[in-house]
C-alpha cells in the first residue's frame, strides 16, 4: 500500500498537503500544534515531518513503533536516542529498494493491524492498545521467522543499543577497557556490556 492509496490518506496527510501549498516551516509548526490539539491527549504524537526517506505519515508511525518497542523507563528509550531518525537515515543512505519496501511494509502492516483490531490508526490508539498491537505482531512475525520484520527489529535494537544513550545510559560501554578481567561476578559489573 503506498501513501497515494486513498486508504492511507488521512486527515494529517491532507493537512500536510495543505501546508505544503502554503509552504514553509511555520506551516509545519502550525500543523504540529494543530495535530496535538486535535488529538486524543498526549497519547497521540505530533505528526513528524517527512524524513529523508519516509513520508511524514510513516515517520509518525515509525516513531510510535520504536517508542513502543523500547520506551522511556528509568532510562531514555528509542525516541530519545533518535532511533526513528536513524532508521530513516538508513533507508536513505544504506538500504536497497527491496529493503526499503520491506520496511515500508512492516510499518504499514502494523498500522493495518491497529485498524483491524481497534478500528483506528496506530498513531491514534491509546498506548495500551498500541502496545498490544505491536506485541502481538512481534510475537507472530518472529514465530514465523519473518525475515523483513526480523531485520526491522534488529535495526531498532542496533539503533538504540549503539546510540550513546543506549550504550552508556541503558547499558555500559568502554571504548578502551584497558584490561581483560576474565571472571567477575555479574553483580560487580552491573549491567550487560553494549559490546
Amino acid at each position: 500500500m503506498s501513501d497515494n492509496d486513498p486508504m492511507t490518506i488521512n486527515r494529517r496527510t491532507l493537512l500536510r498537503q495543505a501546508v505544503y501549498m502554503v509552504g514553509g516551516a511555520a506551516g509545519l509548526n502550525a500543523l504540529a500544534a494543530c495535530s496535538d490539539q486535535s488529538a486524543e491527549g498526549d497519547a497521540i504524537p505530533r505528526l513528524s515531518g517527512p524524513g529523508r526517506y519516509f513520508t511524514g505519515v510513516r515517520m509518525t508511525r515509525l516513531k510510535v513503533i520504536v517508542d513502543t518497542i523500547i520506551p522511556d523507563t528509568d532510562t531514555p528509550g528509542a525516541v530519545a536516542a533518535g532511533v526513528h531518525t536513524f532508521i530513516d537515515q538508513m533507508m536513505a543512505d544504506w538500504a536497497e529498494p527491496d529493503t526499503r519496501d520491506q520496511f515500508d511494509k512492516v510499518i504499514d502492516e502494523i498500522d493495518e493491524r491497529a485498524v483491524a483490531a481497534h478500528g483506528d490508526r496506530l498513531t491514534r490508539l491509546p498506548q495500551e492498545q498500541r502496545f498490544a498491537v505491536i506485541r502481538d505482531y512481534d510475537a507472530e512475525k518472529l514465530g514465523q521467522r519473518n525475515w523483513p520484520y526480523r531485520r526491522f527489529k534488529d535495526l531498532v535494537l542496533v539503533g538504540y543499543y549503539h546510540s550513546q544513550i543506549g550504550a552508556t545510559e541503558e547499558l555500559q560501554y568502554e571504548l578502551i577497557p584497558g584490561e581483560w578481567k576474565a571472571c567477575l561476578p555479574l553483580a560487580e559489573v552491573g549491567s550487560a556490556w553494549a559490546d
Binding site: 513502543t68 518497542i69 523500547i70 520506551p71 523507563t73 532510562t75 528509550g77 502496545f131 505491536i134 506485541r135 512481534d138 510475537a139 518472529l142 514465530g143 526480523r150 527489529k153 534488529d154 535494537l157 542496533v158 543499543y161 541503558e170 547499558l171 555479574l186 549491567s191 550487560a192 556490556w193 553494549a194 559490546d195
Partner: peptide, 26 residues
C-alpha cells in the same frame, strides 16, 4: 561468551520487559 542485546532481535517481546531483559547479559 555471554549473549548481548543482539539476542533481542530474534526473540519475541517488546517494551519495558524487553529493555529490562536485555539490560542483563544473556
Amino acid at each position: 561468551s555471554r549473549g548481548d542485546w543482539r539476542r533481542g532481535g530474534g526473540q519475541a517481546g517488546i517494551g519495558a520487559a524487553l529493555k529490562q531483559d536485555l539490560r542483563k547479559p544473556g
